[in-house]
Amino acid sequence: MLAYIIRRVFQSVIVLLVVGLVAFAMFRFVGDPIENMLGQERTQEDVERLRSKLGLDQPFVFQYWKFLKAAVQGDFGVSYRQGRPVAEILIERAPSTLELAAVSGTLAMLFGLGLGVYTAIKRNGWVSNLIMTTSLIGVSLPTFLIGILLIYVFSVELGWLPSYGRGETVTVGSWSTGFLTSSGLKALILPSITLGLYQMTLIMRLVRSEMMEVLRTDYVRFARARGLRESAVNFKHALVNTMVPVTTVIGLQLGSIIAFAIITETVFQWPGVGLLFINAVQFVDIPVMAAYLMLISVLFVGINLVVDLLYFIIDPRLRANGVGAH
């Protein structure tokens, strides 16, 4: 098992190195930063001086190494647009995205699992059919459209919920939270539904199909033949086995919730990391873009690693490590 963990960590590091290379390459291939930083009236001498000052005259590999070293220490350079360290901006923006992702991820997981199990057990009930049909909307409508629809109904027509922003926030330590004020909580509702709906329907449909598969297996039939209660058959025997493949997907979906937050944050003008990224793209603020890229990849790789380790906890066959396993 230890060998497996080490191998997975090693793989993760390689993935991060490659992403780092891509992020770093942006600096070099999206225009020459020297051109951007110096005005029209520059001399060749100015260019050379700045180039050596920024270390841009050094070999590519050396520059990459420096970039990585700085990135590991949390130094992503200075934002071109705001003139402040990128790390500082990210830390400031992170809580709002993380809170949004946490709420919509929890919603997606709870409802996705619950409805998936329900529709698998009551396969042919009309409620199940209704849920399945409705879920097609969640899968097929694009996120921004759902967001705009929700804003139209609940903010414009009914006027119940705010259409943009985070509401009032309270700062706890360096973390600004919207959980503690009623306007903050209200502001969370529409964006988190928008962000979580797609993931929820995806998880639900996956849980349903996996569970239906499991309900057909011999061991479920045998569990019934042993006279176990339906509840034990469904929730003990079938659900545990359903969770093996579902865990991977849920894990990856949590990662993409944060990545997909870009769209939701744009629709709702949510002051999070996604909105920061969109603004950075508009202004070609490369340090911010590079840092965002690195951050998302660390997140994905991290979640992936956790999911792989979760596998060990759920599935004893992986723990066997060759002992008695065929």
Binding site: D218, Y219, R221, F222, A225, R226, G227, V244, D315, R317
Partner: peptide
């Protein structure tokens, strides 16, 4: 079932819950 009638199925590899 199980109490008065016991059942043995064909494939022992798939009759037991693997987890």
């Amino acid at each position: 079932r199980g109490k008065e009638i016991g059942v043995v199925f064909q494939d022992p590899l798939t009759s037991l819950n693997p987890l």
